[in-house]
Design a protein around this nucleic acid. Sequence first.
DNA 1: GCCGTTTTCGGCCCGACTGTTTTCAGTCG
Length: 574
Amino acid sequence: MLGNADIARKLNEIRTLMELAGEPFYKFMAYERAATAVENAAPVSQLIASGELQKLPGIGKSIAATIAELCDAGSCSLLSDLYARFPPTIFELLSVSGIGTKTAAILFEQYGIGSVEDLEAAIEAGNLAGAPRMGPKTLDNIRRGILAYRGRTHRTPLAAARVIAEETIDYLRTRVPLDRISLAGSLRRAETTVGDIDIVCTSVDAPSVIQTFVAWDRARAVLADGPTKGTIWLDDGLQIDLRVLPDELYGNLLQHFTGSREHNIQLREDAVRKGLRVSENGILELETGRTIICRTEPEVYEVLGMEYIPPELRSGSGELEAARARTLPQLIELSDVRGDFHMHSTWSDGRNELEEMIAAAASRGYEYHSMSDHSQSRGWIGLSPDDLLSQRPIIAQLSKKHSITTLCSSEVDIRADGSLDYDDETLAQLDIVVGSVHSAMRQSRDEMTRRLIRACENPYLNIIGHPTGRMIEISPGYEFDYDAVFAAAARTGTALEIDGQGKRLDLPAALARRAKDFGVVFTVDSDAHDVKGLEGVALAIGQARRAWLTRKEILNTWPLEEVRAFVQRKREVR
DNA sequence: GCCGTTTTCGGCCCGACTGTTTTCAGTCG
């Protein structure tokens, strides 16, 4: 059974191949919009089972049938027919910067070029010299595009991209006069990974800002270099786009470049129905010819009859409707967090001493936190029951010294059968317990579902750590019946973690949004293995916001006595 | 192919930059 990411990828393949095959624009675009909807949706298998698939925006009868076929069989007749017409390597051709579907179609149909290798050979042999719209500059750009294609790796994880973006902003700030500057695009929306970095700023002298930008010594190549827009590639192939406009347009500019694409399409389609044309240059009233310009982003949404939509919600999956109805949730913020339930010390596999972690938690201003080193079956990194209990007086002393409440905890392994890795007597002496799956991750969907539900039913398990086990860009995690586990978590009073390690960010936002409907309580934790790792809570907050979560749904924004009551309630129900 | 507070047909977001063009097509976000 295919997961959402795979289904979305196949829908995008259908979209691309349809365009190559000359299908009408709005027909193949429908598949792209459907792919976006699937990316942001709850698990498709679950939606099919509950008859909710066609409720997704942009998914009608025909595409729903295609999705059902894909989900079930892994492929579909539509895609098989398209595969028969084009070689699989056509997608690599299209991922060369500068080659779009029009060019690829001509290359394939008129020159028999169906792969990057073919393309390179044709250019070197001079076979493309007379091709339409293929002058010397275009051929140079394609050569450069091929090099970049070969040198490129994955999408960039959010945390790494944020560091580079901040460096770029620092570089510009210190060298050229700016008014306001901000991250935009997928980075500002806190997407898990980003394909490029978007930055917007305002200045009275846009051209000199752009010139400064493209002259940066870290730029390996300059792709665009206009009066208001510049694009560069860094050494590792990461692309940075910068757009500069006058300060009075900052609101329009930021809104435009924060996207997402689908959010903007929906927003502008709605605006057109009101006689308005929305772009980064303002909001044009078609009837009067007057342009409304907005200094701030909330003004843009206000002009369009909506409350402000936080960037993390801008995925085109229902946020515009809610904003019109003024029913958006008050999203959790970093400042709401009172503590962090998941961190490690050198007692298990952490890199900082117990005291360093406790001091660091205190210096972040937390009221409480817990130390959750690994449990015994993790081998040399795990703590025996005796070791675990011997932490308690040490923690009490350090906790007092650093004026913070440190809860004694453990990240206990959830064993293959769903039991926990310490006995009840040991667990009963902890203040709060995190349980995670670290072994037997290839169990069947049914086994994993039973395992997690049994864990939820354990009266001592309070939080399921990184619930899906996914590793970004590496593994989608283990399979289980999400709805069944969410229901069990809600029923038993077991919180689900949003783990803030850059490589995890787990639960994924779309699943957390689904779980919210079951009445689940969440935690936003760092899962830090060193002092610096505590910053991961900010990443977890980004994902929680993308899941539409509010403070009241997140355990570690609650006062300590309510956290203790949450733990106690579960222990009493036996 | 999808969709509806101009509804079941006729629409469907918007603009910058580039290179090859004498007015624009293609790509990108």
